[in-house]
Every structure is written in structure tokens, then in C-alpha cells.
């Protein structure tokens, strides 16, 4: 699974930056086409959901997803053979 921010919804409040225990969300610096500074993702493959959601068949952790007031965080299926970084168990 792949973590994505839906930039058509995100308003750039940075609450996800505050809550992620892995520090995956980082405050952004650039305005997007909607005039919002959305956070950037730092090695999102470290998120427990990216690694284990499919295996466990349920949402793990998920606090960013719950606190995001704009329903902008989601996990999507990767396309087949999408380039992958090596996943590290922390």
C-alpha cells in the first residue's frame, strides 16, 4: 500500500506532522496549485499501514488519518511493479 495526501482536499494545517510517531509528514515549503502548502512525505514506506495493512486486513495506527480534519490522507494500492525502496523494519 502507498500513503498519499489528496492535494485537492488538504488545507495544510500540519496536524499530521504533529501526530505521526515516525515523523513521516514534514512541513512543506511550496505552494501547490490551490495555494496551499501541503506537507511532504519523508520515506512513507516506513508507515505501518504501508507495510502491514494488507497483511492484517485492517487499519493500523492511523492517527494521521483520523485527525486529518480534511479527510485528505489515504492508502492506495500500488500499481504492479511500481519502483520500491527497500523496506526496513524499525
Amino acid at each position: 500500500m502507498k500513503l498519499v495526501i489528496d492535494e485537492s482536499r488538504c488545507k495544510g494545517c500540519n496536524l499530521c506532522v504533529l501526530v505521526c510517531p515516525y515523523g513521516i509528514f514534514r512541513e512543506g515549503t511550496e505552494l501547490n496549485s490551490r495555494g496551499v502548502v501541503s506537507p511532504v512525505l519523508d520515506r512513507p514506506e516506513r508507515c505501518t499501514n504501508c507495510r502491514l495493512q494488507a497483511l492484517y486486513g485492517r487499519m493500523l495506527c492511523g492517527v494521521c488519518h483520523m485527525i486529518c480534519p480534511d479527510q485528505a490522507i489515504a492508502w492506495v494500492e500500488e500499481r504492479p511493479f511500481e519502483p520500491h525502496r527497500v523496506e526496513v523494519e524499525f
Binding site: 485537492s8 488545507k11 495544510g12 500540519n14 483520523m66 486529518c68 480534519p69 480534511d70 479527510q71
Partner: peptide, 29 residues
């Protein structure tokens, strides 16, 4: 998105200001 069956996705993004807690409470409910 939480509870996708219950959100009117066509109405999003909602009118709440950046960082307003109401969106979070809606998620949890």
C-alpha cells in the same frame, strides 16, 4: 478517508477553516 460509505464526497472539501477541529470530530463520529 475514514468511513467512506458515510461521507458525501461530492461536498468535500468542507467549509471549515484550515486546522478546524470540527473535521476531526466528524471523522471520529
Amino acid at each position: 478517508m475514514i468511513a467512506p460509505d458515510w461521507f458525501r464526497e461530492d461536498r468535500l472539501p468542507h467549509i471549515y477553516c484550515t486546522g478546524c477541529g470540527n473535521g476531526t470530530v466528524l471523522n471520529c463520529t
